[in-house]
Write a protein that binds this DNA or RNA. Structure first.
Length: 467
DNA sequence: TTGGGG
């Protein structure tokens, strides 16, 4: 067995994956195409670790897992795109209940990662310490690149969800673009991802009479994103928040770079305060997809079509038209999304939107009037892109409620607006609400000349609650 | 040492 000897010639030999699998406990050299990248995490020992999956011609479908350990996250492989090529020198083949896998031993193994695209350069974009490139490597890399052109390794799963199809609970795969990443607490990350589709509306369970002390939040992050960040987000389609907050392990999520299309595997979805939230688990995986990934291209194209069609910025589930619960003047004005509203470049502006009213403050119509007798209400509006507070004041309230109806009539209108089921029992506040899509006119303005953007407010006008 | 399938 030549590989038990310290034979320099062995360094020039790459084994096919299928042959390496028969070389248990031996040091081998491998070269393969990366199809999957596990999230880096802190190991239970002293190291950081991650697992990637590679394929080659001998094992094109299932591939083999390679486990890396390193003293810190920086020393682990940072794969820029699924489909890239990794060269592994002196790694150990290990047998395990789950089959054979590869161990990268930091004492003597080394790696180099190359772009996978045919025609790209032969210098690696990341090398481990101890790696020494050789001229002969080029031949193998060129060979693998050529192979991937005709046998595109399956990097993106066919069994993935769009945000428009998400459901609570079951683990699934999501293909999406990372828009923004931030660390909210030590080791706790919030990712903002998007695929151009609208996540489905969900029932609201909060109690309206608790809205003052415990208001329905506008977003899941305790510190709202800055206007600068928000303005870089697309204005059509849901921006989903994803968190590793319930995962005990420390995950290397700083490696997720905004702008990349990513496939997340084994993630969960939850609803928090009526907002969808993606949940990263320790067994979640992600892989960056190449920019020309078919699905990414499809999402981009759909988005561009929607963004161009100025008349169709209605939520995906609002078909064919919003409910007739409200009516607006200015029927000729096209609908925009709440993200359009939040990112509009001028402070003073007018908009027409399709929204759900998910909460009101005060929670009961008996309190809708200020002591002076004029209307004063705060609505929490949402569409698939954002939530905002919008106020109804004075004359706009008279228009909205058709004057000053009786309290019974007001309660009926309020229930219709908030999607509260009318029941005989007094506890209708306990029931989840399912607000209908309604249209409204909004105007924006500032209340402080010294802090124009920080003091921006939204008001409802020229809108009538038909009931 | 650590982790590793579906």
């Amino acid at each position: 067995m030549s590989n038990l000897k310290s034979d320099d010639n062995d360094d020039y030999k790459f084994l096919r994956i299928i042959d390496a699998m028969a070389s248990i406990n031996q040091k081998v050299n491998l070269i393969g195409v990366i199809t999957e990248i596990g999230i880096s995490k802190q190991s239970r020992g002293t190291d950081c670790c991650c697992t990637i999956k590679i394929v080659d011609e001998s094992n094109a479908s299932s591939g083999i897992s390679v486990n890396f350990f390193a003293e810190n996250f920086e020393k682990l492989p940072h794969v820029e795109s699924a489909g890239d090529i990794i060269q592994l020198v002196r790694v150990v083949m290990k047998s395990h209940r789950s089959g054979v896998n590869v161990l990268f031993d930091k004492k003597f193994s080394s790696f180099a990662i190359y772009e996978g695209r045919e025609g790209s350069k032969f210098s690696p974009y990341q090398v481990s310490s101890k790696f020494h490139g050789r001229d002969q490597d080029k031949k193998f890399i060129a060979g693998l690149r050529k192979w991937t052109v005709s046998h595109r390794p399956e990097t993106a799963s066919n069994d993935f969800l769009s945000l428009k199809d998400i459901k609570q609970g079951n683990q699934s795969t999501l293909i999406c673009k990372v828009l923004h990443v931030c660390e909210v607490k030590d080791g706790e990350w919030l990712l903002f991802v998007w695929d151009g589709t609208d996540a489905p509306p969900v029932n609201i369970h909060t109690k309206l009479d608790e809205e003052f002390d415990n208001p329905l939040p506008l977003q899941l992050e305790s510190i709202p994103l800055s206007r600068n960040v928000l303005c870089k987000f697309p204005t059509v389609g849901t921006v989903l928040r994803m968190t590793n907050g319930n995962c005990n392990e420390k995950l290397g999520l700083h490696l997720l770079k905004p702008g990349k299309w990513v496939q997340f595997k084994n993630i969960n979805f939850e609803v928090r305060y009526g907002l969808w939230c993606g949940i990263l688990l320790s067994k979640s995986k992600f892989s960056f997809l190449p920019d020309d990934d078919d699905h990414a291209i499809h999402c981009r194209r759909t988005y561009e079509e929607q963004a161009e069609s100025k008349w169709d910025r209605k939520p995906f589930t609002c078909l064919p038209w919003p409910s007739k619960v409200t009516d607006t003047d200015h029927q000729d004005v096209p609908f925009v999304t709440l993200m359009d509203v939040l990112t509009y470049p001028e402070v003073i502006a007018k908009f027409r939107c399709v929204v759900r009213v998910v909460a009101t403050l005060p929670g009961h119509p008996r309190d809708f009037k200020a002591p002076c007798g004029t209307y004063r209400i705060r609505l929490t509006l949402e569409d698939p892109t954002a939530r905002i507070h919008a106020y109804i004041y004075a004359e706009d309230g008279v228009k909205f409620f058709w004057g000053y109806p009786s309290i019974d009539a007001m309660i009926k209108k309020h229930n219709a607006l908030l999607g509260v089921e009318e029941t005989d029992d007094a506890d209708s506040d306990e029931k989840p609400r399912n607000p209908p899509w309604v249209e409204c006119c909004l105007c924006s303005y500032n209340i402080d000349e010294t802090d124009v953007w920080g003091s921006i407010r939204y008001r409802i006008f020229d809108t009538t609650l038909v009931g």
